[in-house]
């Protein structure tokens, strides 16, 4: 499956091997994984809520757009939900293309879009209590470059 939303951990190495094996004709594979920051030891856990149904649709749509814009050979997105501990993996993207520029750009595009267009919300449990993570203006600004560029 090219898009997976799951509570369970995933094995990054195995995913990349599996993805790469499917990418006949590609000359470049770029991968990214996002981890739970421990915020200097103050974070005890993070909880990720999502909107089942819409999440998968939104990720599929973002993936389809990336495939087309960057002529990708393929792309895989895995995003977890539920309670996570510091240093755990939250998500990964992998992109493959004939040349590295498209694979890198495709991965960045996927990350920028899924940060503020896929229905996930993070809540941090820490020493000072619990708080929903606020969206950053920089996340919206990151989307602008993709509309100006092309």
């Amino acid at each position: 499956m090219s898009v997976r939303v799951q509570a369970e951990p995933f094995n990054m190495g195995a995913e990349v091997d599996d993805f790469t094996a499917e990418m006949t004709g590609a000359g470049a594979v770029v991968t990214f994984s996002g981890l739970v920051r421990d915020e200097g030891g103050t974070l005890s856990s993070m909880e990720i809520e999502h909107y089942p149904g819409m999440t998968e649709k939104a990720l599929e749509a973002i993936r389809a757009e990336a495939l087309e814009r960057f002529s990708l050979t393929g792309a895989r997105i895995i995003h977890r939900y539920g309670p996570l501990k510091p240093d755990e993996q939250i998500m990964m993207v992998a992109t493959a293309a004939r040349h590295r520029a498209d694979a890198f750009a495709g991965a960045e595009f996927l990350m920028d879009y899924l940060k503020s267009r896929a229905p996930f919300w993070k809540k941090e449990h820490g020493a000072d209590g619990t708080d929903w993570v606020a969206a950053k203006d920089a996340d919206e600004a990151a989307l602008d470059r993709w509309s100006k560029d092309r």
């Binding site: 909107y51 939250i90 990350m111 940060k115 503020s116 267009r117 996930f120 919300w121 929903w132 606020a134």
Partner: peptide
């Protein structure tokens, strides 16, 4: 119809 705060995935 679903209402929610700005999304914070990734």
């Amino acid at each position: 119809a679903a209402f929610f705060p700005p999304m914070t995935g990734g």
